[in-house]
């Protein structure tokens, strides 16, 4: 995030850090106990999902708090139109975790925006652990930034070509104050407040660099993909849970207990 400030704890409890080989690479957001929403391009480079981990309840990448949880990935569903009609079009990924998230005051789901959501004069924020300067500096602290949405005709004008911005994308950024998202923020949420609830309207996707404010950040439109997201979560079975097993130390103890109970039953 360029031009942001450190986010207070518990302010964005749906924020996810996507780790690849132990390093933060992308953001994501919690949809429910098993599902995280992120960007397809965060998962495209390597199909081995075993190398990815999801962290929730995290504010500082180097400090695990009381509510920090770590999850392995069970499956990743990329949108079928990813890279089909645009180099970074259809940039949506649904990530199913192997085990369920335990909600707390630091770990909560976000709402999804519907196609009919009215974005006029909305209070919108982006969050992430991406680059914080055009020189490539990073921050371990989650950054937050309030930013205005940019209407589609203006975004077309700024990017200078009609085909760059597709109907499944939206633009946001503070052109005057050079506030925008950057590398490492991808997959993270753009949320807006409606009636005291936060709805996710965008997924950080792409932009022409981060340092030129005249090229705003481009986000995958959540309302455009909301039906696909809901349908896929609904039809995908929850992962099989491992059967509970007795620990070697507990086995003999239970055997003794069972023998005692058997003796009592005779009495």
């Amino acid at each position: 995030i360029l031009g942001g400030v450190p986010a207070p704890e518990r302010k964005w409890p749906w924020q996810v850090s996507v780790h690849y080989a132990g390093l933060h690479v992308c953001g994501g957001s919690i949809l429910n106990e098993y599902w995280v929403l992120s960007a397809a391009h965060c998962f495209h480079r390597d199909k081995n999902i075993k190398i990815y981990d999801m962290y929730v309840g995290l504010v500082n990448l180097r400090v695990a708090g009381n509510h920090t949880q770590w999850y392995e990935v069970n499956r990743v569903i990329l949108h079928p139109t990813y890279e089909m009609y645009h180099p970074i079009g259809g940039d949506v990924a649904l990530v199913q975790l192997k085990t369920r998230i335990v909600f707390s005051e630091s770990v909560l789901p976000v709402c999804l925006a519907t196609p009919e959501v009215n974005l006029t004069s909305a209070n919108c924020w982006a969050t992430g652990w991406g680059l914080v300067s055009k020189q490539g500096e990073t921050s371990d602290e989650l950054q937050e930034m309030q930013l205005p949405l940019i209407l589609e005709p203006w975004c077309h004008l700024l990017y200078g070509h009609m085909s760059y911005i597709m109907p499944d994308m939206l633009c946001a950024g503070d052109i005057l104050n050079a506030k925008t998202v950057c590398e490492g923020d991808s997959g993270g949420p753009l949320v807006c407040e409606f009636n005291r609830s936060w709805l996710q309207i965008g997924i950080v996707s792409w932009g022409r660099g981060c340092s030129n404010p005249l090229y705003p950040g481009v986000y995958a439109s959540v309302s455009y993909f909301s039906k696909w997201i809901c349908d896929n979560i609904e039809i995908t079975p929850t992962p099989a849970q491992p059967a509970p097993a007795l620990s070697p130390a507990l086995g003999p103890t239970l055997s003794v207990l069972m023998a005692m109970l058997a003796g009592w039953s005779v009495l």
């Binding site: 207070p8 704890e9 518990r10 302010k11 964005w12 409890p13 749906w14 949809l31 429910n32 106990e33 599902w35 909600f103 005051e105 909560l108 789901p109 976000v110 709402c111 999804l112 925006a113 519907t114 009919e116 959501v117 009215n118 949320v191 409606f194 009636n195 005291r196 609830s197 936060w198 709805l199 909301s226 997201i229 809901c230 979560i233 609904e234």
Partner: peptide, 27 residues
């Protein structure tokens, strides 16, 4: 599974807790 919240035009994908409601409000 899908619970629409008409008052805020949002979709909640979980029935166990309210979506989009942090316990700490930003200033």
């Amino acid at each position: 599974l899908v619970h629409r919240q008409p008052e805020n035009q949002g979709i909640s994908l979980t029935g166990s807790v309210a979506c989009g409601r942090p316990s700490m409000e930003g200033k």
